[in-house]
Nucleic acid binder design. Structure first.
Length: 781
RNA sequence: UCGGGGGUGGUGUAAUCGGUAACACAGCAGGUUCUGGUCCUGUCGUUGGGGGUUCGAGUCCUCCCCCCCGAGCCA
């Protein structure tokens, strides 16, 4: 396994859609995406997922992904963020042409289109206050009502809009609203705001604009202007899609630019456990001084992860690992750590460093004598070249954790009387210990002569430990980072972030030492301190002579003796109570209720519902489904009375097979007739054709009103019952899948369905399934 | 007058036409190893629940349950 940066990206539902669009030529074979951050905060790992998705698709199709700043709200935005965002995107390894784009570049065109909307009666200026607008908008379960200003003349509206644009009106005086539908069940369509007045200075347009467009207006237009084909956003914008399409449609902006209309596709945003992802909460951490800044190595920001020592390759591998879907999910942060280790394993040279030094005197080694040992930078399995020298002398230091007076079972380190190997060096045997105030302050040991690179004969070596020559040790400050929060879901509960913080998320060790080869390590360089973890030389605080190392991630530690204080999250007892938010929402009406209402409105349906169970002897559940509308019931009636179908069979077929055959169509829009349905079902019941074939025929009947008899006759679709004929197919299938046949005989009986399926498929659905089953069973015995 | 989107192992994501529930992480058990790392092997599952259609259902029909989103002059 290698670092996964170059591995092929797995398919996902978005790429499926794109593939499909390429096939149908929906966008003229083009794929153009965009990443549209608002410059009001730093990018985090969640954005990284979106960046990898959008830019990854562009790379995959050899096309383009635009970086476009959604700078439509000057009150919240800042150039500081623009710079950091551009830097982060490039650091992740993506490029976006010559320069970043800005929604504000399109303000002129947006305004022109807004006037068009007014002229076309599709927008109006509303003088209601914000409170009134909210009130007039209604609620989730009650329709809104129109503003008294909704029906002013085009001329009046145009006049007000131009006053707004000219800066003649103070903030809040009025707004431009789309004129759609105050009773829409989608709240986003209840005459949404398009422009609001903001006498604010904009970083790019200066004071040129006293009005600014809303997201729902600016976004689709920006996409269209740039010729975006697939506009990917997160799930919470699903309700906005209808409005997105309305704007594209009513402004005609795509047609004006001669491009296909962009389509919005939503996917689930990334959630990670043991961290928070919302910009607001991250800002809170920074402002409250809970972390040292946006680039604090504990932050899930790209800047923070970079400083922590994560490489872009790891982040991209992570994005690839977690995939893209529409399910709200929470990713285990261990997966990120896995990607980081998997990446660093191949790039970080191995060196020795001691975090909590314990002095070891090699009593058998002459004072002042130094031996230059050598050690490769990489283990054999990584197989990269390079080595450095490791001076060894009478006095060395080892980690306190690597010595125990009273070693626990399974301890593979140093203890009184035991021998361990010093990594790349001699084996040493502990023969004495100096204790002061109950604490071991020095270990005295003898070295085993001639044990470098050789197994010492007759001596049991407990393990291998890391060490540094005391005389040559390079002092270092080591910052041990751990997850910022101690609970898996800091977002839940009362939301008091401070109380969920992990008090041990940062531990600073000032008296660590590392081997001399690290003395001039470059800021930003990655190292593995063997047996300790991966580290990066801090880019901000490390100085020549004052090394600062950040722990990027620990090594995987499978030693049970290693006390692991991170107790796994107590499986949050699944509460069967509805969530607080769910309770505030009105209940949905079921389909049963809709059908019942339809029957109340239409006495004919009501009568059918009441009498059919007895008249035709079919289950009430089926009757319910047949009597929710006239067309379905009429079809049933015709199939039974005119087509001679058996009522129960007709009902079952209409209930189970009609909806999928219909797809998006309405029954009334098809040429399906009751009598032909009756004919088809009689053919099935008599054994003339198989159910499988009947479904295919039925699809054509729905599609083009075909006559089942004709299709069956023309194509020779009669059911095949002849054992000899079927046995031939069975033999072919078994021969073609001899490996699977062996597996089956070996006990993998789940393959039975596979073989039956293959045979039936080979017979084009005509083979009698019971006969096929019997023969397959006989043949595979 | 409510509407929209979802539910596959502990976790994330797959599964052509309805036809072997797969891959990875984590866990557990071994093996290799001068890192308790890496690597290798094995092990762990009947798709939220019920009913139905079908020779065969994660996939189709149906009822129920659960979760998420929407009433900013935020994005």
């Amino acid at each position: 396994m290698t670092s996964t940066g170059a591995e092929p990206t797995r398919g996902d539902f978005i790429r499926d859609i794109i593939e499909h669009d390429m096939g149908t030529g929906r966008h003229g074979g083009r794929v153009v995406t965009r990443f549209p951050p608002e410059p009001n905060g730093y990018l985090h790992i969640g954005h990284a997922k979106s960046i990898c998705l959008n830019f990854g698709i562009a790379e995959q199709y050899g096309s383009r992904c635009n970086l476009r700043f959604d700078d439509t709200n000057p009150a919240k935005e800042d150039v500081e963020y623009v710079d950091s965002i551009e830097h982060d995107v490039r650091w992740l390894g993506f490029s976006y042409g010559n320069q970043a784009l800005y929604a504000s570049d399109y303000f002129d065109e947006m305004y022109e289109l807004a006037e068009d909307l007014v002229r076309g009666g599709n927008a109006y200026v509303d003088h209601l206050s914000d409170d009134e607008i909210r009130e007039y908008r209604g609620s989730l379960s009650a329709p809104g009502r129109p503003s008294p200003y909704r029906d002013r003349s085009v001329e009046e509206n145009l006049g007000f809009l131009r006053q707004m644009r000219a800066g003649e009106l103070p903030d809040g005086t009025c707004v431009l609203r789309a004129r759609i539908d105050l009773s829409a069940s989608n709240m986003k369509m209840r005459d949404p705001l398009l422009y609001r007045i903001r006498h604010a200075h904009h970083d790019r347009t200066g004071d040129a604009w006293p009005i600014y467009p809303m997201y729902d207006y600016a976004h689709p237009i920006s996409d269209a202007i740039e010729g975006i084909t697939h506009s990917l956003c997160t799930l919470e914008f699903e309700n906005n899609r209808e409005l997105y399409e309305w704007v594209i449609d009513r402004t005609g902006v795509s047609e004006k630019h001669g491009v296909s209309r962009p389509q919005q596709i939503e996917f689930a945003r990334l959630k990670l456990d043991y961290t928070v992802m919302s910009k607001r909460k991250l800002l809170l951490l920074v402002e409250d001084g809970l972390v040292a800044g946006w680039d604090d190595p504990r932050m899930p920001t790209i800047a923070g992860m970079r400083r922590r020592g994560y490489r872009p390759e790891a982040i991209r591998a992570f994005a690839d690992l977690i995939g893209v879907a529409k399910v709200n999910s929470v990713v285990d942060i261990g997966k990120l750590e896995f990607c980081v280790r998997d990446d660093l394993n191949w790039v970080a040279p191995r060196v020795l460093g001691v975090l909590r030094p314990l002095k070891v005197t090699i009593t058998s080694w002459a004072e002042g004598e130094v031996e230059e040992l050598t050690g490769p930078y990489f283990p054999a399995d990584v197989g990269k070249p390079g080595e450095r020298t490791l001076p060894f002398g009478r006095e060395i230091v080892i980690d306190r954790d690597d010595f125990a007076l009273d070693p626990p079972p399974g301890y593979q380190r140093l203890a009184p009387g035991r021998t361990v190997r010093l990594r790349h060096g001699y084996c040493i045997t502990c023969e004495d210990v100096v204790v002061e105030n109950g604490e071991v302050v020095e270990v005295r040991a003898r070295h085993v002569p001639d044990s470098v690179g050789k197994k010492p004969a007759g001596i049991d070596v407990s393990g291998v430990i890391h060490w540094v020559s005391a005389a040559h040790a390079v002092p270092a400050e080591v910052r041990l980072y751990d997850r910022l929060f101690k609970v898996p879901r800091p977002d839940e509960g009362d939301g008091d972030l401070a109380r969920s913080l992990n008090p041990d998320s940062l531990q600073v060790i000032r008296d660590a030492v590392v081997e001399p080869s690290l003395a001039n390590a470059e800021p930003g360089s990655h190292w593995q301190l063997e047996r300790v973890g991966y580290f990066v030389v801090d880019t901000e605080d490390s100085r020549p002579g004052a090394l600062v190392l950040n722990r990027t991630v620990t090594l995987r530690d499978s030693w049970q003796g290693a006390a692991d204080p991170e107790s796994p999250a107590p499986a949050a007892e699944e509460s069967h109570e509805r969530s607080a938010k769910a309770k505030t929402r009105p209940p949905k009406k079921s389909r049963t209720e809709y059908r019942a209402e339809a029957r109340l409105r239409d006495p004919v349906l009501g009568e059918r519902f009441a009498t059919w169970p007895a008249t035709y002897g079919i289950p009430e559940d089926d009757v319910d489904l047949l009597t929710g509308d006239r067309a379905t019931g009429d079809l049933f009636l015709a199939a039974v009375t005119e087509g001679g179908g058996r009522p129960a069979a007709v009902a079952r077929w209409i209930v189970n097979e009609l909806p999928p055959a219909l797809g998006e169509r309405e029954l009334a829009d098809t040429r399906l007739s009751g009598p032909t349905l009756g004919t088809l079902l009689s053919a099935v019941e008599s054994g003339e054709i198989t159910a499988q074939v009947a479904k295919d025929v039925f699809a054509e009947m729905v599609e083009r009103g075909a006559d089942p008899r004709a299709i069956i006759a023309e194509r020779g679709l009669a059911q095949v019952n002849d054992e000899g004929a079927i046995a031939g197919i069975v033999d072919q299938v078994v021969a073609a899948n001899s490996g699977k046949a062996d597996q089956y005989r070996g006990g993998k009986t789940a393959l039975f369905g596979f073989f039956v399926g293959q045979v039936i498929k080979a017979s084009q659905g005509k083979a009698n399934p019971q006969v096929v089953q019997k023969l397959v069973r006989d043949r595979l015995g």
